[in-house]
C-alpha cells in the first residue's frame, strides 16, 4: 500500500467516524433534542430566535446575561416560560415573556429597539401655523403664523426657503395645499377661495406667472382636487360638485347638486373618478345616505368644450 493510499484510508475512516458520531448530534439538535449525559436520556427542548433592529443588543434570559448578541438563536431550552430582556446602549430596553414549547421555535424576529433620545429636529426656520408634506415631490410646505407667507424645504428640512406671499385677496386661513399631478402648479384653498400658484422650485422666484384667485363667496368649499390633466379643478362645496379651469375668470360647471350638506369624498386621480356620499329621499319619505361614483375622465374633454361655450356666451 502506497503512502497516498494509507493516508487516503485514514482519511476515509476518519470521515466515516465523523459522519457517524456527528450525525446523531446534528440530528438530535436539529429536531430539538438535548442529550443529558447524567441521565443518558434525550430531553425535548425548544428554540428562541431573536432578531433586532438595530442589531447587537445584549440578551438576558431570566436575568442572566448570555454570551451572545442579537441576532441570536438560543438553543436547547427546556420547555417553559422565560423572561427575555434586550439591552442596547442609547435604546430603550425590550422585555418579553415567552413560552417555549418542546421541539418548537419561538421567532421574535421583528423587534425594533427605539432610541432613548429621540431624533427630534426642528425643520422650520420661521414661526409657522401649518405645514403640508408632499411625499411625491419630496417637499414640505409651511405657512407662517399670519397665514400670509409660504415656505418650503425638502423632507429632511434642508434647503428651507420662502416661496412667497399668498395673494392679497386670499382672506381667511387656508385649509389645505395640493400639488398638481404634473407637479407644476399648486393650489391652496380656504372656505371660500382657491389660490393657484405656479412655483418654480429651482429658482428663487416664486411665480413664473401671477397666482390665480378663484372666489366662491356664498359657498363653503369642502374639498378641491386636481384633475389628472393638471388644468381642471374638481370642487366639492356644501351645495354641489363642480369643475372649473385653474384659470382666472373661468366659469365653473355645476355637475351635481347635493341634497345634504358636507359630503364625504374621495378622488381617484388615476382614473379621474370622484366618490362621494349624498342623501336621497326614498319613496317612504325617509332620507337615506348613498355612495355615488362620478366619472370625469371621459367627460373631461366635453367639460372643456362646455366651459369654453359658457365663456363665449358670457362675452
Amino acid at each position: 500500500m502506497s503512502n497516498d493510499q494509507r493516508i487516503r484510508a485514514i482519511l476515509f475512516y476518519l470521515s466515516v467516524a465523523i459522519f457517524f458520531t456527528g450525525l446523531p448530534v446534528i440530528l438530535s439538535s436539529s429536531l430539538g433534542y438535548k442529550f443529558n449525559p447524567r441521565t443518558l436520556k434525550f430531553a425535548k427542548t425548544g428554540i428562541i430566535s431573536l432578531k433586532t433592529q438595530p442589531q447587537g443588543a445584549s440578551i438576558y434570559l431570566d436575568g442572566e446575561l448570555l454570551n451572545d448578541k442579537t441576532p441570536a438563536t438560543i438553543n436547547e431550552l427546556l420547555p417553559g416560560s422565560y423572561n427575555i430582556k434586550l439591552e442596547l446602549k442609547y435604546y430603550y430596553p425590550w422585555f418579553f415573556q415567552v413560552n417555549v414549547e418542546p421541539r418548537k421555535v419561538v421567532r421574535l424576529e421583528k423587534i425594533i429597539l427605539f432610541p432613548t433620545r429621540s431624533n427630534i429636529e426642528q425643520l422650520n426656520q420661521d414661526k409657522v401655523a401649518r405645514f403640508w408634506a408632499d411625499k411625491d415631490n419630496g417637499r414640505i410646505y409651511y405657512l407662517n403664523q399670519e397665514g400670509t407667507i409660504l415656505y418650503e424645504s425638502d423632507l429632511k428640512g434642508e434647503r428651507f426657503k420662502e416661496l412667497g406671499s399668498l395673494p392679497p385677496g386670499f382672506v381667511s386661513f387656508p385649509k389645505e395645499l395640493k400639488t398638481s399631478p404634473d407637479k407644476e402648479k399648486m393650489l391652496i384653498f380656504n372656505a371660500h377661495q382657491i389660490a393657484v400658484f405656479y412655483p418654480k422650485p429651482q429658482e428663487e422666484a416664486f411665480y413664473i406667472q401671477p397666482p390665480v384667485l378663484l372666489d366662491f363667496s356664498g359657498q363653503q368649499i369642502h374639498n378641491v382636487f386636481w384633475h389628472s390633466d393638471s388644468y381642471h379643478l374638481v370642487l366639492v362645496t356644501d351645495r354641489n360638485i363642480k369643475v372649473t379651469e385653474a384659470q382666472a375668470n373661468s366659469s365653473p360647471v355645476n355637475l351635481v347638486n347635493l341634497n345634504s350638506g358636507v359630503s364625504e369624498v374621495f378622488y381617484n386621480v388615476d382614473n379621474d373618478t370622484l366618490y362621494f356620499m349624498d342623501s336621497q329621499t326614498g319613496e317612504d319619505g325617509v332620507s337615506y345616505d348613498n355612495v355615488y361614483k362620478l366619472e370625469l375622465n371621459k367627460k373631461a374633454a366635453l367639460l372643456n368644450e362646455l366651459i369654453k361655450l359658457r365663456q363665449n356666451g358670457k362675452e
Binding site: 482519511l11 470521515s15 436539529s30
Partner: peptide
C-alpha cells in the same frame, strides 16, 4: 423529509472535504 435532507447535507459536507483532500493529494 427535512431529516433525510439534513443527513444528506451532512454526508455531502464530509464527502466534499474528503474528496477535496483527495484532489489535493
Amino acid at each position: 423529509c427535512a431529516v433525510i435532507i439534513i443527513i444528506f447535507d451532512f454526508y455531502w459536507i464530509i464527502r466534499t472535504v474528503y474528496l477535496t483532500t483527495l484532489l489535493v493529494m
